[in-house]
Design a protein around this nucleic acid. Structure first.
Length: 275
DNA sequence: CGGCGGTCCTGTCAGC
DNA sequence: TGCTGACAGGACCGCC
């Protein structure tokens, strides 16, 4: 499932493919994804020209010239696949097809159906229930050592769980939480409220560094991620701890261990990462 | 209010 | 080979 770097990469791909083009036809192959499609979904999109493509957290935002905004979340397994021309048949788990005025098809395919699509307007975007309570973007000026410190104050959960909390900072999923904590040399088990200001500073720097590197690499490809233009990213080759249980730490050669936190796997080096 | 576990759904892989 | 259970990149909801 795409994390923020993947979503960012997909947005860039979709921008070059869709912006300026008219969506001539929309086909739905099921009545809902994680939530139902709005009743006017198809008619609101057909005939509309794409004005711009944006992103907030892991939500893809497709703004139409008429002022409506299509919100897309890819969930765990969703992908946007582009075909050069209309096809005769569908792939398994193709749920939504957008036909463009240049003949290309943009297809939303999502095996697990944790993804969603809905509509809003530019005016209501920031107060939309899905977006309203989101914390700062990790690569924005709003996410600083000071703001992170303030958000961690008094929190009794482990730091790893807290940086995955979208009200603290958005877009840090399981992979990049593990990788950022390794880079910052902080144990995922350390209680958030005990993370010191200098560690907050390191963690913010590490989140920046890891996300930027991943975006530069075009996202990470695991199993079922496909970039908007059909290419996979290659950041997975740069993982230092994620998925490396039992393998030697690249820094100190201590075996990487895996634990379970809030139902998710955490990978870390018990020697390099301090509590 | 914060934090945790359950849940949505399907596919894949390890182990027997 | 075939079955079973664990696990997978997210995020909401309800319960304590």
């Amino acid at each position: 499932m795409p994390e923020l770097p993947e979503v960012e990469t997909i947005c860039r791909g979709l921008d070059s493919l869709m912006t300026g083009h008219v969506i001539v036809q929309v086909e739905l192959f099921r009545p809902n994804l994680r939530i139902p499609f709005p009743p006017d979904f198809v008619e609101s999109l057909e005939g509309q020209r794409v004005a711009s493509i944006g992103r907030r957290a892991k939500y893809i935002l497709i703004t139409l010239e008429g002022g409506r905004v299509l919100i897309i979340h890819l969930g765990m397994s969703g992908k946007m696949v582009v075909y050069p021309a209309r096809r005769n048949r569908r792939e398994t788990h193709d749920h939504v097809v957008f036909m463009l005025d240049n003949g290309k098809e943009v297809v939303f395919n999502d095996a697990r159906r944790f993804g969603l699509m809905t509509l809003t307007t530019e005016a209501e975007l920031s107060s939309h229930p899905l977006l309203r309570l989101l914390g700062p973007e990790p690569l924005s000026d709003q996410f600083t050592a000071e703001s992170l410190c303030a958000a961690l104050k008094g929190r009794k959960s482990p730091i790893k769980t807290v940086i995955m909390d979208n009200s603290v900072v958005v877009g840090v999923g399981n992979i990049y939480a593990c990788e950022s904590l390794f880079d910052a040399k902080i144990s995922p088990l350390k209680l958030a409220g005990l993370v010191m200001p200098d560690e907050c500073g390191r963690l913010v720097c590490s989140i920046h560094k890891v996300l930027r590197a991943a975006i530069k690499a075009g996202g990470s490809t695991l199993k079922d991620y496909v970039q908007a233009k059909g290419d996979g990213g290659y950041f997975q080759h740069q993982f230092k701890v994620y998925g490396r249980e039992g393998a030697p730490c690249f820094t100190c050669h201590t075996p990487i261990i895996r634990i379970r936190q809030a139902g998710r796997s955490s990978f870390y080096c018990p020697n390099c990462q301090k509590e």
